[in-house]
């Protein structure tokens, strides 16, 4: 990363800090949502983008973060930060417990196993009395959008700094080597098991905190929304649309898609979903390596970039 983009990023972050004093209520709702979704995309990026393990089950960690906060606050009347900690502990334990068997699977097998876990977890939680069974839990209500906004922004910055570190570190080199060729990575001295598990744990951790913040912010949770499987799809698409395995791609991808979605959802929700689907189809055909790669490619080769992508990938 050159110093210039970093400087720009720093300026943008400083400007973003002041948004709550300028934005309307509706804008704030959108901003908090967009920031949390960006965290999910960025956290997914550590595992899916850098390590090449496509998870359709990160909603499990999100749900555990959600329930950690809700159980701590609604059932035991503990402060919010304890809730966040509980969420982290649950998510990390879960990542360790399921990661060890599941990270042995590769390709679509891993992807679908995680999808299965996401579905199973919702069913399990809806049968736990301490989690409010299938009715859900109500958290103490506070109106503090500014706080939620700054927390979400802080989390996103932290998560992105982590990804920045990954992209430049020995650890990250190991992850990318695993993505490129796992067997070769092993014979070159990389302890692939440990690397993959650490990537999963990092991914789980940030995802869980996003869940905790979201739970307190909307102050009511139930299994269906906490373990919403479509959330997985949204984070994967945002990351992949922006450019998986890059530092800023998932951010840009998620902000753009959040904005499109928000704009359309305010008119007709079916049309919004439909357009979302069409965007995915077109994106895979014309820019299979994500937005970041496309910008570079188009600058270098103009519209021929798109044709070349098709020529490379068609039968």
């Amino acid at each position: 990363m050159r110093p210039l983009p970093l400087a720009i990023a720093a300026v943008v972050v400083v400007l973003l800090v002041f948004v709550p004093w300028l934005a309307s209520d509706v804008m704030m709702q959108f901003a908090i949502d967009a920031l949390l979704l960006a965290v999910l995309a960025q956290a997914w990026n550590i595992l899916g983008g850098f390590t090449g393990y496509v998870s359709f089950g990160n909603s499990v960690f999100y749900g555990l973060g959600t329930y950690g906060a809700a159980i701590a606050m609604a059932q035991f009347h503990l402060p919010f930060w304890v809730g966040i900690l509980l969420g982290i502990v649950l998510a990390v334990l879960c990542a360790l417990l399921i990661g060890i068997p599941i990270l042995r699977l590769r390709g679509p097998y891993f992807a679908i196993a995680t999808l299965g876990l996401a579905a199973a977890m919702g069913a399990i939680v809806s049968n736990l009395p301490i989690a409010g069974s299938n009715i859900g839990l109500v958290l103490p209500l506070i109106r503090a959008d500014t706080m939620f906004y700054e927390l979400s922004l802080g989390l996103l910055v932290l998560c992105t700094l982590t990804v920045l570190w990954v992209s430049k570190s020995r650890f990250g080199m190991g992850l990318v080597a695993i993505r490129e060729d796992e067997d070769a990575a092993g014979t070159m001295g990389i302890n692939t098991t440990v690397f993959k598990i650490v990537a999963l744990v990092l991914s789980a951790l940030f995802t869980a905190v996003a869940g905790s913040i979201h739970a307190y912010w909307i102050s009511f949770i139930d299994p269906a929304s906490a373990f919403d499987p479509t959330l997985n799809v949204r984070m994967v698409i945002m990351a992949v649309f922006g450019g998986p395995g890059t530092v800023f791609g998932p951010l840009v991808g998620s902000f753009i898609l959040s904005a499109i979605y928000e704009y359309l959802a305010s008119s007709i929700s079916t049309a919004a979903a439909l357009l979302f689907g069409i965007v995915i189809v077109l994106a895979v055909i014309f820019m299979p390596r994500g937005l970041a790669n496309m910008i570079g490619g188009v600058r270098a080769r103009g519209p021929r970039y798109f044709l070349q992508n098709i020529r490379e990938n068609r039968l």
């Binding site: 080199m173 990318v176 993505r179 490129e180 067997d183 990575a185 070159m188």
Partner: peptide
């Protein structure tokens, strides 16, 4: 078996 998407320098750096 080089790491296909990595540069030559990155490949060797992994070693």
């Amino acid at each position: 078996k080089p790491f296909p998407g990595m540069s030559v320098l990155e490949n060797v750096t992994v070693g």
